[in-house]
Design a binder for these strands. Structure first.
Lengths: 180, 180, 180, 180
DNA sequence: CATGAATGAGTCTTCATTCAT
DNA sequence: CATGAATGAAGACTCATTCAT
């Protein structure tokens, strides 16, 4: 196994365990076992357990924001934008349940970049008359909270039932849509 | 200090510390110090650290459900019911931030009883034509998630700004209201 | 065994082991075994291994200086003073061989106070015409070095043969005596 | 760099580090870094860390004895012999402070050969009537101890002030000279 | 020959739990 | 009942040594 492979294996093992048992609940030897390496090897790649945690969080927070904030389709409406953001977030949670749980467990999910996008969406929707005036923070709290709430409904590590995700999407839009 | 007083002090200290640093991040001697008792005393009231955690969770989950699910005012409409539930949840989070954080941190917030109430509300609202058909789980996820999301916006231990709470309440109703 | 007894046992065990194998060559569990206590107990009395070492050094350096620098007999001559200092140092090395070895191993043997006494002796001896002019540092180096050299001759933990000690004392006086 | 060069670099690095931090306080990777070689390389030249230490001690103890015990000048008197031995020892300590410190730190400085020379000097001096009867061990302890004592006076890695060395030499001769 | 990534036994230290006072 | 000194298993981290490249 190459050095990069081991580094990745360590990150993967740590992610799974931190997501399942938390940082303090996970012992370094457990991570080593999960990664299939010796304990000492972990310290060749990360100076401390904290550093491993930090890198892991930075890595996945970045990836989460990166996936959610990809360019919107051309000619998108605010409604389509909201739907797109929501689906991307749900897709991330479905594809990387451990990463999602880990990020939710340990504080804000890369707040700044997402919040910016929510601000832009709120402004845009209001300009177009499609959305009622809504604080960006409220919008972010709605999306993130709804996703976290749905994840809780599912069994641990369970995926969000697509039907519920679609139902929620409809609710979310109505939550912020301008009254007809 | 009476025996009950000590027991309460231990529970209070543990709540604060578990909320701030997590179960695994909190040492029993820390709890003892926070409670103003000797280490050994803790073990006169709780057989293990886990048992203390369990009792604490049961206690607060019960209290949370108890406060939120108090009888609704007579002649309430579905809209008023939703608002009442939301305000009670927000009030709990504002009044007992440590308890709220602790409950959110450690898995489901006494899911069953709340879910039941959401089910009842969804049925009721649909019967009256005030709400669109909505799965109870989605409703619960919306409320709980929105609250958690708002708490995250606030500084650690900070309270939710009342204005945001009201704005959110409006969104939540629209999310599930029947289209006019 | 009382708390003070345990503390003392730890200090004693550490002294023996540090003297025999050095600070870095001694493991904390070894100290615990030598002291007849559990590993954790050591940390109830000393915050770190380094702190234990520090206290040990302070303790014995003080005791060494205290024993050597006790008041000289009245009507003592410079010659008698030198003899007294030397005998006290040798007595300390004979009575507490581990402590002596430990102090020698780890840098200066409480240099300042002893050096002061050597300075006083050198001045005194010269004023009386009994000693030739001699730098205090040279005098200290002579005494301490001679003692360390004799200790080396003896087997590890072996005592200095009294005959050699007396012979050395004669040499030391001649080393600094004024020429007849 | 040639093989011999690497071997020498390792010995040099180890000497410096062992002198400064002791055997147990020095990590093999540190030695490798100081020597400018890879860790594994050390094990191509020395089977274990202990073996490296052993060779180092043998090497320098031999060199020390070799330098001190070079042939004395023809027509030397006992007094000149003592002075010569002392100056050679001081010169060694001045020229190779790390080596001197290392040898002093770790037990006897190649006792046997030096002791033999001291014995010969003591016998010779007595036969000539220049020295009082003195045990060889005492003579050795005086010289070595005086040197070690002077080294302690100097700052770490500091050289012995020549004036002190000369003053000491005078003392040493008087210590063992026959009374005039 | 030289390298340095990998190893895992061993290090210092913490902490849940017990029990004599 | 309350205490806190004592315990030792377990945690994070180090380091002498090996071996595939």
């Amino acid at each position: 196994m190459s050095g990069l492979g081991k580094r990745q294996a360590i990150l993967d093992g740590a992610l799974m365990l931190f997501a399942a048992k938390g940082f303090d609940g996970t012992a370094v030897p457990e991570i080593a076992a999960a990664a299939g390496v010796a304990v000492g090897t972990i310290y060749r790649y990360f100076p401390t357990k904290e550093a491993l945690d930090g890198e892991l969080r930075a890595l996945w927070a970045d990836r989460f924001a990166g996936e959610v904030l990809q360019p919107l389709p051309a000619n998108a409406t605010p409604r389509a934008a909201l739907r797109t953001y929501w689906r991307r977030m749900a897709a991330f949670a479905r594809t990387h349940p451990s990463a999602y749980r880990y990020l939710e467990l340990n504080g804000p999910v890369e707040g700044a970049r997402i919040l910016q996008a929510m601000q832009a969406l709120a402004d845009w929707g209001r300009r177009e008359g499609a959305m009622k005036p809504v604080t960006a923070g409220v919008l972010q709290a709605l999306l993130r909270g709804a996703l976290a709430g749905l994840m809780r409904l599912a069994a641990p590590d369970g995926a969000i039932p697509p039907a519920l995700a679609e139902e929620m999407e409809d609710c979310l839009w109505n939550a912020v849509a301008a009254r007809g």
